[in-house]
């Protein structure tokens, strides 16, 4: 089980929560209460019914990453999406991760 924390205790989401390869997934079913999402947010929720990274969302929406991130902040705050941060790879990363990437490239 990977370490997860619930959105509940978090401080207000900031743009720093979203990198280009932060993975976003719509919460399904959506929370019962809360504001109705705006049209752009509805598009985002549809696109991230399955996990998708921020850069791909921006490309599919044809919107700048900076704009998508603001919309995602609101969706995160409303509890409508979950986010997964990229694996840390600077310094000395998990050797299994490196080997997995190596093996995957070898299969190309």
């Amino acid at each position: 089980m990977r370490p997860f924390t619930l959105t509940g205790g978090r401080t207000r989401p900031s743009r720093a929560d979203f990198t280009l390869i932060t993975t976003v997934t719509a919460v399904d079913p959506p929370p019962e209460h809360g504001p109705r999402p705006q049209p752009e947010q509805t598009r985002i929720l549809r696109l991230c019914a399955r996990p998708v990274v921020v850069a791909e969302l921006a490309a599919h929406l044809d919107l700048p990453v900076s704009v998508v991130v603001i919309l995602l902040c609101d969706l995160l705050e409303a509890g409508r999406i979950t986010v997964r941060q990229p694996r840390p790879v600077s310094g000395s990363p998990d050797p299994n991760l490196l080997q997995k990437v190596r093996d995957g490239l070898g299969r190309l």
Partner: peptide
């Protein structure tokens, strides 16, 4: 940064590297 992840979704999101 894994600690800042939110609740586990039904479909586990894959790890992303670049």
């Amino acid at each position: 940064m894994a600690g800042s992840d939110t609740a586990a979704p039904a479909v586990p999101a894959p790890d992303a590297v670049k």
